[in-house]
Design a protein around this nucleic acid. Structure first.
Lengths: 106, 106
DNA sequence: GCTGGTGTTCGATAATCGTCAAACTCATAT
DNA sequence: ATATGAGTTTGACGATTATCGAACACCAGC
């Protein structure tokens, strides 16, 4: 069967889910990295957690509508859903990314 | 002794704590209300939860640096730390408040 | 075929969280 | 002083969460 991975539509993205997804340091690091790097394979984020845990974080980000996953061969590539987030919650992602620059991991 | 209520300094406000605090519908409602109303007593938010639960939410918001509490007589008044939040994470609060307008409770 | 690499899913566990009722503190009445 | 009202604190409970190892699925080579 085709890929079962689900990405919420733009108008299905919920603020509470986005806020929750971005309240974890590991997930914040993924988002921060994708904001610079555009597209990266799952394995290339050094999150300091196990593969299983990292996979869980990818799922939370995807289901919140923050990232999109593309499967190519044996690699899973992540991208930021920048335009979708900007359309749904203007300024939110920019504010979060700017905050990361200011305050290290705070 | 003076009041023991602690408010984090501006540079102690952590992004993850703010994001977590704003990931709950009841707390979001408090913030949304304070954005319009400027100052309100704790009891005047109809959150649909018990007093104990509401008090817990006030504490989470205060400890995250989002609200400030002022005690006057037997009333506890809450205000939004708008300038502090804007200084620490420019655009974040505005984005959240704008999002609330767009998407009801989503 | 097999083997190695990439990533997910499945329990399981420990920690955190949201919720409440009950007891409490403090101020303001009467 | 006795009550009433505003809010907090204290357990306690169930639900969610973050974490891991182990097993699994899939693809790309050998």
């Amino acid at each position: 069967m085709g890929s079962n991975i689900h990405h919420p539509a733009v108008d299905e993205i919920e603020l509470t889910a986005v806020m929750h997804a971005l309240s974890d340091p590991a997930r914040l690091k993924v988002v921060r990295t994708l904001a610079v790097e555009e597209e990266r394979a799952c394995g290339t984020f050094d999150l300091g957690v196990s593969k299983a845990t990292a996979s869980h974080h990818y799922k939370v980000l995807r289901e919140a509508g923050i990232t999109r996953k593309r499967i190519e061969g044996s690699h899973h590539y992540l991208t930021l859903r920048r335009e979708d987030l900007d359309a749904r919650f203007p300024g939110l992602l920019d504010a979060v990314l700017a905050a990361d620059l200011a305050g290290a991991a705070r």
